[in-house]
Simulated scan of single mutants.
Amino acid sequence: MPNNAFQRGDLIGHPFRDQDLLKQALTHRSAGAPHNERLEFLGDSIVNLMVAEALYQRWPKADEGALTRARAELVREGALAVIARQLQLGERLTLGPGEMKSGGHRRDSILADAVEAVVAAIYLDAGFEACRAVVLPWFQASMEALPATGRPEKDPKTRLQEWLQARQKPLPVYELLSESGEDHAKIFRVRCSVADPAASTGGTGSSRRIAEQQAAAAVLEQLDSK
């Protein structure tokens, strides 16, 4: 059950005038109507616009392809789920009994949808400028982690796959070793293994994808040193 501070929007940086908007944004369709699917639809467009505008201003010399790839990296499901965990949205979602039992509050797709729905709720409650002031800081760390050129390099998993394919070797295998921590501060441990040439190492991160990327990067270092 949401606490009073969260109902006011304090934890996401916006004090809602219309509390029903926030309540709807955090209600999954499994819990019945009114749920957050319409808000999610609107929020998806708002997030894409805000991030596109920020990238356009940040990288004045980047071409359309670079901007598109950067935006896709920032607004993908896994990235939005990380934001949801930082905002502690999972534990405050209203889910139907089936989703509650299956751990829906931890599922990336549900968390990402909730972020988009909350963005739309802020927009409807206070307008675009206020929404942008609240939402863009959520993406700041991820945006700063992108290459300053505006041309994101291929991620380690892609580079490892291409390295193996170029040599006609078996593809890597990723194994989830453990998952620990609270919903808003999860830690994932993953192992990446390559059969030929033999190489194996682990990675950790705040999402399974990040852990896999870290493990893949470490395997690439092993292969390059051989």
Results as ranks from 00 to 15, higher is better:
residue 1 M to W: 02
residue 1 M to H: 05
residue 5 A to E: 09
residue 10 D to F: 03
residue 13 G to K: 00
residue 13 G to I: 06
residue 14 H to Q: 05
residue 15 P to T: 07
residue 20 D to C: 00
residue 21 L to E: 01
residue 24 Q to N: 02
residue 26 L to S: 04
residue 28 H to P: 02
residue 32 G to V: 04
residue 37 E to D: 12
residue 38 R to N: 12
residue 41 F to A: 13
residue 43 G to M: 07
residue 45 S to P: 00
residue 48 N to W: 12
residue 50 M to L: 15
residue 51 V to R: 12
residue 53 E to M: 13
residue 56 Y to F: 15
residue 59 W to S: 07
residue 62 A to F: 09
residue 65 G to E: 14
residue 67 L to G: 13
residue 68 T to G: 08
residue 70 A to K: 03
residue 74 L to W: 06
residue 82 V to M: 05
residue 83 I to C: 03
residue 85 R to Y: 02
residue 92 R to M: 02
residue 92 R to C: 00
residue 93 L to Q: 00
residue 95 L to Q: 00
residue 99 E to G: 01
residue 100 M to T: 12
residue 101 K to A: 15
residue 102 S to M: 10
residue 105 H to S: 11
residue 107 R to A: 09
residue 108 D to E: 14
residue 111 L to D: 04
residue 112 A to P: 13
residue 113 D to I: 00
residue 113 D to C: 11
residue 120 A to L: 12
residue 121 A to M: 07
residue 121 A to R: 02
residue 122 I to F: 11
residue 123 Y to L: 10
residue 124 L to Y: 13
residue 124 L to A: 07
residue 125 D to E: 11
residue 137 P to W: 14
residue 139 F to L: 10
residue 142 S to C: 01
residue 143 M to A: 05
residue 144 E to R: 11
residue 145 A to L: 04
residue 149 T to I: 00
residue 149 T to M: 01
residue 151 R to D: 10
residue 151 R to Y: 09
residue 152 P to V: 04
residue 153 E to I: 02
residue 154 K to A: 12
residue 163 W to R: 06
residue 163 W to Q: 03
residue 172 P to H: 04
residue 172 P to V: 03
residue 175 E to W: 02
residue 177 L to A: 07
residue 178 S to F: 01
residue 178 S to L: 01
residue 179 E to K: 12
residue 179 E to I: 01
residue 179 E to W: 03
residue 185 A to W: 04
residue 190 V to A: 10
residue 193 S to G: 06
residue 196 D to Q: 14
residue 199 A to Q: 09
residue 199 A to L: 11
residue 200 S to Y: 07
residue 200 S to V: 12
residue 201 T to H: 15
residue 202 G to C: 15
residue 209 R to Q: 14
residue 219 V to W: 07
residue 221 E to H: 14
residue 223 L to H: 05
